[in-house]
Write a protein that binds this DNA or RNA. Structure first.
Lengths: 149, 149
DNA sequence: TTGACATGGTTTGTACTACCAACCATCCTG
DNA sequence: CAGGATGGTTGGTAGTACAAACCATGTCAA
């Protein structure tokens, strides 16, 4: 084992904490982590099923069930593309959007006590460092919350 | 929405990336994220079922199945406590320990390209900042990889 | 143009995850 | 010793995820 994996360890540790927060908040709204992410993803996109599967790293068949359940709850809608009648475009409904926004607020509010352990300057610094390792050095507004790998 | 959630967003984004790495590496060894975490947890502990459930934030019944499947694969073992014959102590087997170590190496190796985007000084800084928000300010060697919330 | 192949989604079947409620076994306490 | 509390397992249900088989539509080349 390499002598200095402290950063990798810290990343994994913090990530599990963040996931615990997301999982809890999701479950309070009867949403799995994946559904949560789906909703966040659809806030500023209108992808087809295949794109969604690629974004989330899931199989097409998994997407079918995922979208089907979300649709049954009125959070997303399926629309057939006029250009290619095979493709199904997935959109978020007003109800879904409202839920997604509330979720993000709750997540941020829950994470705040942790991030508030840092001085404002350190918060900016940490944000920058995280963006750097994530590859979003020039913080593009395109790449947003709950993005794909 | 508060004006400055940049740090929270970055944390969530990076966490999803880290989870994607863990999920992929786990699945290459036929391990779910939870099994991965269970294995990591057992590397330096010998908890009873209830403690494991609390650590992982899961129901006792979920732990039964989880441990049962891991035991069937020879990665962990159940041992009855002599003091209290109700409790079941869970231990990692040599095979399980070897796998856990290989997993950690792979995870660290996969994360390295990301963390290597930072200068050594920034890596130390980031480690310190992450430890701070996670509450492990005095980096205790007790609290290790894949810890509980 | 039409036959062959590629692409986009759904369906079906299986295994795992996770919860809850009900249930035994063992411990503890009055 | 009779409750009740605690530790785990079992059974039932829903969701997640994959792979394979499938249908519909699109594309390309002979």
């Amino acid at each position: 084992m390499k002598p200095d994996d402290a950063l990798e360890d810290a990343l994994v540790r913090v990530s599990f904490r963040v996931m615990a927060v997301l999982t809890r908040i999701g479950s309070e709204h009867d949403l799995s982590l994946t559904q949560l992410r789906l909703l966040g993803l659809l806030r500023d996109r209108r992808p087809r099923m295949t794109d969604l599967a690629a974004f989330l790293g899931l199989d097409k068949s998994t997407m079918s069930g995922l979208v089907e359940r979300a649709e049954r709850r009125g959070l997303v809608a399926r629309g057939k593309s006029p250009e290619d009648r095979r493709v199904v475009d997935v959109t978020i409904t007003p109800a879904g959007r409202e839920l997604a926004e509330r979720l993000q607020e709750e997540v941020n509010a829950t994470l705040a006590p942790f991030t508030d352990r840092l001085e404002p300057a350190d918060r900016h610094l940490l944000t920058h460092l995280l963006d750097t390792i994530a590859g979003n050095s020039g913080h593009s507004d395109e790449e947003r919350w709950l993005n794909a790998p």
